[in-house]
Design a binder for these strands. Structure first.
Length: 424
DNA sequence: TCTCCACAGGAAATTGGGGGTT
DNA sequence: AACCCCCAATTTCCTGTGGAGA
């Protein structure tokens, strides 16, 4: 039996490899010094008794946006507490709320918690205008300077009136600053012109980390997390030196993979920690490049699997038609043939059989999530044109994850066994 | 080169379900 | 309970189109 001691050989502080900021929060972000300086100047007026500038922060996921803002606002709050400056920071997670309305209720709830302590219910059943007024009233009551951080504001979609109302607050007893954070670069373009001019006066962009920065980030975490791991380096450069459990090229490789993709630090960390776990599972003393590559393939499989499982039954049916076609060597397959299969499936499992247009949309949805590939071809005189679809993932992965759906498992198994018989 | 047509897919209308208020 | 509003999914309506065959 495995003992729990063996983990100690590898890890000092396993949490340091966790991509999740809830689990491990770095004390500073050296790679984001410039951006945080900009944020600093936007907030500086508070220290001089003025009103902070509204800020909009852009950048893809895993660039330290949320954490960076947290570090800076915490620092500011600490300073304010020490110097008896009346400052309140409210952090609203917009993720999960698809409308301004929902975000507003969250905001009011959090503002009330400032005064009444935790456990206040979200206000329900009010008009949007009333809610805005409620928010402003709360702010007046709280007084001083109020900093509202709206994280992942792109979640609210088109419906941006909260961003229109908030910066226009006309408060007597309070000063309001708004910090908006978004992953979606398009979000800015879609914003109402008025909103952009008021909220977007200051825009700070977190550009994706490059391979070198990622290397430093990963190295710093690895030093904390892993035993006998040391890196030589100034602030500028971490170079793998005598590393107890990591082979020299492991971190650069993880960094390179992550940089190649989206420059997401979380992604890099996930890859690194999975590589380490993999080596542990295989009872290898050190983590090597091959572990990293295997871990990457594993992550990729998981990702595909998850995206298949997350699809609706209808989309799964559509996917299954292409999977079967691929198994029979009939890909790329034409829409009309696939639609026939689809109708059969629907009858077999007693699902709603939608019209062809809807089915086509399912296929295109699958294309957008990268599971299928689409091509257009003409079919000749009097025969119009058609799309052809091909599978972009292995049939095995597809079968496995499709059969995880209770409604489809029988159907999938039938198709698989038909296939096995016909190859005999 | 032009034609022809079955399919492609955007726009608008419809449906259906969940939330709320009165 | 009756009603309204909102949203997402689906259907209906419609115009656009590739390329083999005339």
């Amino acid at each position: 039996m495995r003992t729990f001691d063996e983990a100690d050989k590898l890890y000092d502080d396993i949490d340091a490899l966790e991509p999740d900021t809830e689990t491990y929060r770095p004390k500073d972000l050296p790679e984001r010094e410039d951006e945080l300086d900009e944020l600093h100047s936007a907030l500086e007026p508070i220290a001089r008794g003025g009103t902070p500038r509204d800020v909009l922060i852009y950048g893809p996921t895993g660039q330290g946006k949320t954490h960076g803002v947290k570090l800076k606002t915490d620092q500011l709050q600490e300073w304010a507490d020490r110097n008896d400056v009346d400052l309140t920071t409210v952090n609203v997670q917009c993720k999960g709320s698809d409308k301004s309305y929902n975000v507003l209720t969250l905001l009011v709830k959090q503002l009330r918690e400032v005064r009444f302590g935790p456990g206040v219910d979200k206000p329900v059943g009010h008009q949007r205008k009333t809610l805005v007024e409620m928010a402003f009233e709360e702010m007046e009551e709280i007084g001083g300077t109020i900093l509202v951080v709206l994280d992942e504001i792109d979640a609210i979609g088109e419906d941006d009136y909260i961003l229109y109302e908030l910066p226009r607050a006309n408060l007597d007893d309070a000063k309001l600053g708004v910090i908006g954070i978004t992953n979606d670069l398009q979000f800015r373009d879609n914003l109402d012109a008025d909103v952009r001019s008021s909220l977007g006066k200051r825009e700070i962009t977190f550009h994706p980390y490059d391979a070198n920065q990622l290397k430093n980030i990963l190295a710093r975490r690895a030093v904390k997390a892993l035993r006998d791991t040391e890196f030589e380096g100034s602030e500028e450069k971490f170079t793998a030196l005598e590393s107890g459990v990591l082979k020299d090229d492991v971190i650069p490789l993880c960094a390179a993979f992550a940089a190649q993709d989206t420059g997401d630090a979380r992604q890099g960390l996930r890859l690194l920690s999975r590589s380490v776990e993999l080596s542990k599972k295989e009872n290898d003393e050190i983590v090597t490049e091959s572990h990293v590559r295997k871990a990457k393939a594993g992550i990729e499989r998981d990702r595909v699997g998850q995206s298949i499982r997350a699809e609706t039954t209808q989309r799964k049916l559509a996917l299954l038609t292409v999977v079967e076609a691929a198994e029979n060597g009939e890909t790329p397959a034409e829409t009309s043939d696939l639609y026939e299969k689809y109708s059969d499936y629907c009858e077999a499992i007693d699902a709603d059989n939608y019209i062809d247009h809807t089915f086509r949309e399912k296929l295109n949805d699958l294309e957008h999530s990268g599971l299928l590939e689409k091509n257009r071809t003409g079919r000749g005189h009097g025969k119009g044109m058609t799309n052809t679809y091909d599978l972009q993932v292995s049939t095995e992965t597809a079968f496995e994850n499709l059969s995880a759906d209770g409604r489809l498992s029988k159907l999938v198994e039938n198709i698989r066994s038909d296939r096995r018989q016909s190859t005999l």
